[in-house]
Amino acid sequence: MLVTLVAAARSSAVLDIRFGDDRPLDVAGWQALERAMPVLLPLAAAELRYCSPTPCSRQTGDALGLSPMAQPALRDCDMGRWHGLTLQEVTAREPAAVGTWLADPRSAPHGGEPLLSFVSRVGGWLDTRPIEGDGRVVAVTEPSVIRAAMLYALKAPPQSYWRTEVNPLSVVSLSGRPGRWSLRLG
């Protein structure tokens, strides 16, 4: 099975990225999506097409002709009371809590979901896709979800999450089967 993950086009400027950002695509996101379409349109041939429940993921998937089905398991990490705030805002208000969150993947000082639970949730979704063999799946979701999927697939240590970058409209493919995934580049 081949699972291709596409990072949704952006919904805000980098410095305005918010935890649990549920805003629709901004003008720059639409422009970037238009430029990327020739490369991404062939993904619509996948047997199964999904997206996270956010407006930017849905809009990206629809623009690519995927008509994706929203999957709650592909939503961003639940950031509890930090939802809607930027990292800069949270750091100014709760510097010790941010330090704990970055250092301990089992912690959830925001009252939401710990990093390890988030990675497990995304991995559980990946392992339960109903296609076997050479089937193809495509999902449009937030960069954080793609980072979690890569961490799960590679069985990488949790701190690797903070050292992985996924830009809007990036594409990452994972091949394999439940419990045995490989990162596929190129």
Score class of each variant (00 low, 15 high):
residue 2 L to E: 11
residue 7 A to D: 01
residue 9 A to T: 07
residue 10 R to Q: 15
residue 21 D to Q: 14
residue 27 V to D: 14
residue 28 A to T: 12
residue 33 L to C: 05
residue 35 R to S: 09
residue 35 R to A: 13
residue 37 M to A: 13
residue 37 M to C: 08
residue 38 P to F: 04
residue 38 P to G: 02
residue 38 P to D: 02
residue 42 P to H: 09
residue 43 L to E: 00
residue 43 L to N: 00
residue 44 A to R: 15
residue 50 Y to T: 04
residue 51 C to Y: 05
residue 53 P to A: 13
residue 57 S to G: 13
residue 62 D to R: 11
residue 65 G to I: 03
residue 74 L to T: 03
residue 75 R to C: 10
residue 76 D to N: 06
residue 77 C to T: 07
residue 77 C to S: 09
residue 78 D to Y: 03
residue 85 L to K: 10
residue 88 Q to W: 04
residue 88 Q to D: 14
residue 88 Q to Y: 08
residue 89 E to N: 01
residue 90 V to P: 03
residue 91 T to M: 11
residue 92 A to V: 12
residue 93 R to L: 15
residue 96 A to M: 11
residue 103 A to W: 04
residue 103 A to H: 08
residue 106 R to N: 13
residue 106 R to P: 02
residue 107 S to M: 07
residue 108 A to D: 02
residue 110 H to W: 05
residue 111 G to H: 03
residue 114 P to S: 10
residue 114 P to A: 11
residue 114 P to N: 09
residue 116 L to S: 08
residue 116 L to W: 06
residue 117 S to W: 06
residue 118 F to L: 02
residue 124 G to F: 09
residue 127 D to C: 12
residue 129 R to W: 09
residue 129 R to S: 10
residue 130 P to E: 06
residue 137 V to S: 02
residue 139 A to E: 00
residue 142 E to C: 11
residue 149 A to K: 01
residue 150 M to H: 04
residue 151 L to R: 00
residue 154 L to V: 03
residue 154 L to N: 01
residue 161 Y to T: 07
residue 170 S to G: 06
residue 171 V to Q: 07
residue 177 R to D: 10
residue 179 G to Y: 06
residue 183 L to Y: 01
